[in-house]
Structure formats: C-alpha cells, structure tokens
Design a protein around this nucleic acid. Structure first.
Lengths: 157, 157
DNA sequence: TCGGTTCAGTTGTATGTTCAACCAATACAG
DNA sequence: CTGTATTGGTTGAACATACAACTGAACCGA
C-alpha cells in the first residue's frame, strides 16, 4: 500500500494516457447525453434502468439491487424510479418475501420504450465508440476497464 | 452514415466490451469522487478547474476556454467559478483586450490547495487505474480514448 | 455608420443528485 | 422473548447542473 507521501508521480507517457482517458470519457459522455436527449424519449439514466430490468427473467429487480448494479445511491434510485413510475415506465411492487423490500417492475410501456430506443442507442455507441476503434482495440479497452472496475469494486466492498 | 433502422447490433464480444467499459468508467468515477471527498478539501470539478489554470503561464484562462477544455456548459463554469471565488481559490479579472471577456485567475490559496492535493489525487488515480494495468495496457487505453475523444469533438464542432 | 448578427458571460428557473434524518421490518445477542 | 443493531427504503432540504432568456460588447455587410 503506497501512501500519498510516496510522491510517486506519473511519467510523461502515463500522464498523457491518463489525460487522454479523462478527456475521452468526458467527451463521450457529453455526446451520449446530448444525442439521447436529441433523438430519444428516454434519458440515459432511464434507459440504463430499463436495461437492467429487461435482463431479469421477470423484468423486475429490487430497489437495492438496482442501486448496486447501476452504482447509484439508494436515494437516487428512489427518486429516479418515482419519476419513471409517474411516466408509466415502471411500477413499484411490494416484496412478498421481505416486507421491507420493494420491487421495481418494468411495465409494457417501459418495455416498448426500451425496444423502440435500443437501435438508436446502439447507433450512438457505434458512431462514437465502437466504430472508431478496431476490434482488437475495443476488446483490449473492455478488458482493461473490467480490471479497473474490479479494483474499484473491491475497494467499495 | 448508418441510420438507426440499419439495426446493426453489436455481437457478443462487442457487447461485453462495451458493458465492461461502462461499468469500469462508472465505478472508477464513483471511487474517484468518494476518495476526493474523503481525503481532500477540493471536489473533483474544483480540482479540474485548478489543473487547467495551473497549466497556463499566467495561471488564468478565459471562462469560455475553461468551459471548452473541461467540456462544461458555460453556465456550469459560471456557477462553479463563483463558488470557488467565494472560497478564495480563484479570482475574476476583467479582460483587457475584450470587454466582454472575463479571466478566471488562480489565487495563491488556489495554487497552494492544488499543490497540497496533487499527491493524493495521483495516488488515487494510481491505485484504481494506473497500477491496475500494465504499461502497455495503459498506453493502449490512452490511445483508444484519444480517438474516441476526437470523434466526439468532431461531432460537436 | 447604421442595423443585424454573433459572441461572452450572467441570471433565473426547472430539474436532478446528494446528504442526513427518518420509519419500518428484520436479525441477532443475551 | 427483549432490547439493540442492521437493513431497505423514503423524505425533505441543500446543492449542483442544465436550459433558455437576457445584457452588453464586438463584428460585419450595405
């Protein structure tokens, strides 16, 4: 474990790579949000919630699982789900097994919204990320970020 | 130019890589913010502003340049700089050459805060990103994200 | 040099996110 | 059992961000 007082600075190449990473992520997220707003009826967080739900066999997930998977705070999930519920995209269902629990369940309207949005979403991801890289670059990028994710997850655990 | 109706889905490998990317970025940003709040007196946006300023010979930058470089909206820069001005980290200076312009200039307090924070900031970046990857992986990551950044910047221009 | 247009930045307002306090249900030690 | 700690989720207020409207300055074609 290295302490801050180690003063282990990054060398020039490392600094450049880190900077490119920061800028690339920043610009990409900016474009993603912009294109979503411009071309789709779902915001990025709403889309992400629906994707998570759609992957469950019963198209529903407990609030806390949703928070974990999206790396959102519990309160954020509460508010976001409330808005989506008002918009008819999801529905809250009391948990049968644990009376504290609440399941967030995708409605048909939510499902249709997701299906309608997916092609455009994929198109955006392609245009600004996937198609910009070679296949090998993309796969390396994924592998590297998976390691980063795991390192971070370990720290949060 | 491909339209959304092309339905050019991602294959399994591409999907996995995209997902790993999303999750990795998400977790990393989460940890970065958390560790900043926990160990440093500067938030991430404040730190980023100071880094930009510190790279200028006169330690100051016009509001609009700052917005461009950080990929922030102009209004966000206005508010963020106002908060930082209140905290004594930066100072607004009327532009001599263009009476519309405003320069955001780092104060000595801002400089000291940055210098004091940098080692810990680097330590965080190392722990959760740089040291998790081999040198080659890091450099490839940087190269890939630089391409993504350029593709996005071209779209915004 | 006038009139329109663009540009730099701020302001007000709506929206989204976080934080801390809270309630209710569960788990668990004694 | 009983009291205490923990967990799941919500609430409301503070805070941050986005968006649109606005002011004043600069630019530019006629």
């Amino acid at each position: 474990m290295n302490t801050p007082t180690d003063h282990r600075w990054l060398d020039t190449e490392q600094q450049a790579a880190w900077r490119d990473f920061l800028e690339g992520v920043g610009r990409f997220q900016e474009v993603l949000v912009r294109e979503h707003d411009r071309r789709l009826p779902l915001s990025v967080p709403e889309y992400d919630v629906l994707v998570q739900l759609s992957e469950q066999p019963d198209r529903s997930l407990r609030m806390s699982r949703l928070a974990e998977r999206l790396a959102y705070s519990r309160s954020r999930v509460t508010h976001t789900v409330s808005r989506m519920e008002r918009a008819g995209l999801v529905r809250r269902v009391a948990a049968a097994e644990d009376k504290r629990g609440v399941h967030c369940s995708m409605t048909d309207a939510g499902w249709h919204a997701l299906v309608a949005s997916a092609p455009t979403h994929v198109d955006i991801v392609r245009t600004y990320l996937v198609d910009v890289l070679t296949r090998d670059e993309l796969l390396s990028l994924g592998a590297a970020m998976a390691r980063v994710r795991d390192a971070c997850a370990a720290a949060l655990a």
